[in-house]
Design a protein around this nucleic acid. Sequence first.
DNA 1: CTCAAATATGAGACTACTCTCATTTATGAG
DNA 2: CTCATAAATGAGAGTAGTCTCATATTTGAG
Lengths: 210, 210
Amino acid sequence: MRHGHFQDHAAGQGKRERTRAALLDAAVHVVAEKGLEAAKISDITTAAGLANGTFYNHFTDKDQILREAAYGLGLEVARQLDAEMAGIEDAARRVVTATSRFIAILMIEPDWAAVLLGSADHLPGMREEMFRYLRGDLERGVAQGRFNVEVTSFLLDQVASLIAVAIRVQLQAGADPAVTQQVCESILRLLGMPPAKARKAIESGMRVPS
Amino acid sequence: MRHGHFQDHAAGQGKRERTRAALLDAAVHVVAEKGLEAAKISDITTAAGLANGTFYNHFTDKDQILREAAYGLGLEVARQLDAEMAGIEDAARRVVTATSRFIAILMIEPDWAAVLLGSADHLPGMREEMFRYLRGDLERGVAQGRFNVEVTSFLLDQVASLIAVAIRVQLQAGADPAVTQQVCESILRLLGMPPAKARKAIESGMRVPS
DNA sequence: CTCAAATATGAGACTACTCTCATTTATGAG
DNA sequence: CTCATAAATGAGAGTAGTCTCATATTTGAG
């Protein structure tokens, strides 16, 4: 029985919450190892060190636990990102910071990546939630005259797919800051920034905040 | 029992080849309807109007038939694209033509899209095959001074992910030339073309060849 | 047309899971 | 510590598919 984000947050609570958290953590880990579809409920309970039937005391089916896990991880990632983004005014820098920090978080917790990537594809609400942040920064960039694009839902899809591919590559081949930097540059190019300004935004946006 | 690409090509042949082709066409259709994982062997035989056991006279498992179907469709798409690309010298125009015609073909045969997108993710060789064409055109563009990028495997991943997202959006919402045009522009931006030249390349590359 | 070979058939054995529930075990309030 | 309640357990019924094989049917060469 491994340990994870959900158990951390259920530490002081009653047994019910702790078992639930163990199942959520196990689900995240199993999905990361075997993929969304291949993850069986019995894999999850085994990974959590619990009996098969225990699952049904807490969740009705695989979809529910995965939705809940994805939502919980998404919330945590958003919380961390929000903290790091506070006070950044320039939209280009915001996009670079959000992208590079988002990727960095998922490289620290690679198990989260599979769940979040999968849920972005499969869950309707998750995708919209993630897009709200992104859309805000893109519109800000247009208003600031930094980006030269029309902010459509297809544009959001394209930016998201670039971020997703950067995550997938690093998940496969190991964390690689050059890939992150490259994808930031690609995104800014996509948004219509001139190369020189893009490079500058990347330098300031990727600097690790002390 | 519907009709499809593989049956067209097995028309004059023996029963063995015709049944095989019916199974391949059925597999493509079922995968398009239910997705790679959800497609059952019994769905495929039912769609082909054959008994369940017949499947095993021709293929050993689902993976094999899907690999074969993807390869066959990939070959056909490559054949069509090759014909349309012959004689186009300018790399930017080649990229625009390849992208827009590729998408156009998959909008005419939407069932093919699911199989090709799925196989690009899952099959190692398929992806490489597709990338060979793309890499050639990108390197040509760099040599011609039209593109301002380093041609890495990650760059190919990024371009492919943009094309994939354009296909997915149009598969969902219906064919939309504006989306295709938009993704061509995005790709050229990614490759470092200035906006004015990009627009010009799109105009000449997307003109429908009489 | 005939018939041996090739092919298709589908019932059912097998496998792998999901989900239920009567029972056992653990919890924590008093 | 006691005990009513909450939670966990795991055997097994149910379900959904894969794959096999003895049998029926079709094919096409002669």
